[in-house]
Nucleic acid binder design. Sequence first.
DNA 1: CCACGGATTGGCT
DNA 2: GCCAATCCGTGGA
Length: 202
Amino acid sequence: MKKSNQKLKKSFYTRNVLIVAKELLGKIIVKRDGSKILSGRIAEVEAYDGSIDQAAHTFRGKTERNKIMFGAGGFLYVYFTYGNHYCCNIVTGEEGSGTAVLIRAVEPLTGIDIMIKNRFGRDLLNEKEKFNLTSGPGKLCRAFAITMDHYGTDLTGDDIYILNSPKIKPEEIVVSRRIGIIKSVDLPWRFYIEENPYVSKK
DNA sequence: CCACGGATTGGCT
DNA sequence: GCCAATCCGTGGA
C-alpha cells in the first residue's frame, strides 16, 4: 500500500498539536473548486494550545468564533483578522483540547494560475511576485480563496484535505518563536522548512 | 453597549 | 523600517 499521496486520516490529526505541527511540514494541502484543483506544499506552521498558551484563541474558553478548535482534530478553523485577512488552521488533538496549527506558508504546486488571479486579480508582473503568492497566512488564504465559508470543513472530505508525504528530517526543520503575537512570545512553537523560499520571515 | 486591539499586509519614508 | 487600513469578536462596564 502506497503511503505517499494518500489523504491523511482522522488519526493523524487527533494527536498532540506540536507533533502534528512538525509532521505537517512538507505535506500537500489540496482545495478542490469544481474541476479546478489548487495545491501547495506546507512550508511554515505555528502551534497554538489554549491550555497553556495565552496567544491561542482558545485560552479564555469556548466562544462562537473558536468552538471548532474544541472539537476533535481534522477540521479547518478559519478566522478573520485585521479587518482584511483570513487565516487557516488545522484543528488537532482530542475533543476538548482547544489546539490547532496555523498554516503560515505553502509552496504553490498546482493551480498556480488561479492562485495568481485570486491574489492579484491580474497576471504576474515579475518573477519576484511568484514568491509573494503564498508566503504568509493571509496571503495563502487569499490565493486558495479560503474564507469563513470553509470554517469547520472536514479534512477527511473532498473539498479541502491534506495528502501524505515523507516526513521532513528534524535537521531540516527550523524552530523559532512565533510571529505577530504579544503574549506567550517565548514558546518555540513555529516550525519551518530550512531554505524554503516561501517562508514568511526568517 | 461600546471601546479596544489583533496568529497581517503592503505602501511609503 | 514604520505605520495605516479596516472589521468584528471579545471583554469589561
